[in-house]
């Protein structure tokens, strides 16, 4: 439970304030809610920092400020449709008016709305450290080593201009957390498959992507299921969302479907 609250006036100040016992307060959909996954002694409000806002087109990508809300993204003409679709996975417009892209990535939840899509499009991320230095990483690197970057402020996300992605989310209702969110993307000529599997794994599935990309003809659902069964990261558990076998089957047929769509130009 937090016992201190500070308002940062700039990205540099926010980054300098961050330490191991603090958390950035962005849109406010997670911190303070009942059952929050965030436990911090100090909350650093970053809601007033203009430099974290806005969408701009850069040479090879679209730059989206970390404090852009899901609804800002849905309404922006420069953002690719596949990212808007991922934002619309959050069914409540009211929540979309609050939730930010930076907050969603920083939380790195295994039922994240956006992370699978961002991984599949090979998105970049701009971080600011306590000394005020901005560094660029890919979302994959950030999520794989969040402990290393946890004290840094996310400034922006970078969406490659050539990326195409299709994603699918499975949940009981649009208000519920997802059991699976799966994305297939093409960027820089590479096929990437990513998954956000609740309480199991958030990340890319390189073995499956490589096998599918290297196959002479499209793999069958059964062949993809075999690949899914061989992924050590996908140690699904029996829970209220279903059995491990069910989740693996769902993931396999979804990958087959999404790969066909992204290759067929339906993205």
């Amino acid at each position: 439970m937090a016992d201190k609250f500070v308002i940062a006036a700039s990205a540099a100040e926010a980054a300098a304030l961050r330490d191991g016992d603090s958390a950035f307060l962005a849109g406010g959909t997670e911190i303070n809610r009942l059952g929050s996954s965030v436990d911090a002694g100090t909350l650093i409000s970053i809601g007033r920092i203009a430099e974290l806002d806005g969408v701009s087109i850069q040479e090879d990508c679209v730059r989206i400020g970390a404090m852009c809300t899901f609804q800002d993204i849905v309404e922006n003409k420069d953002v690719p449709q596949f990212l808007k679709d991922a934002c619309l996975f959050m069914g409540s417009r009211t929540k979309r008016n609050m939730a930010t892209i930076g907050g969603n990535v920083a939380l790195g939840r295994t039922d994240s709305y956006l992370c699978a899509t961002l991984l599949a499009c090979h998105a970049g991320i701009i971080l600011r450290d306590a000394e005020g230095t901005s560094i660029r990483r890919c979302v994959k690197g950030y999520l794989e080593d969040r402990a290393q970057y946890s004290d840094m402020l996310i400034e922006a996300l970078l969406i490659p201009g050539d990326a195409v992605v299709v994603s699918k989310r499975y949940s009981n209702t649009v208000q519920s957390h997802a059991v699976l969110t799966v994305s297939a993307g093409l960027s820089g000529g590479l096929l990437r498959i990513a998954v956000a599997a609740r309480d199991t794994y958030l990340g890319l599935l390189p073995e499956i992507s490589t096998a599918i990309a290297g196959a002479e003809k499209p793999l069958s659902d059964e062949a993809i299921l075999k690949l899914v069964n061989g992924c050590p990261q996908l140690a699904f558990r029996q829970d209220m969302f279903g059995s491990p076998e069910y989740k693996r089957y769902l993931l396999a047929v979804t990958i087959a479907d999404l790969v066909a769509k992204v290759r067929g130009g339906e993205a």
């Binding site: 937090a2 609250f5 308002i7 307060l25 406010g28 911190i31 303070n32 809610r33 909350l43 409000s45 809601g47 007033r48 609804q71 417009r93 009211t94 929540k95 008016n97 609050m98």
Partner: peptide
């Protein structure tokens, strides 16, 4: 100007 369920946030974030 935008509808939110922001009531769960700390009041400090409402400043201004």
């Amino acid at each position: 100007g935008k509808m939110v369920t922001r009531c769960i946030i700390p009041v400090g974030a409402a400043d201004g």
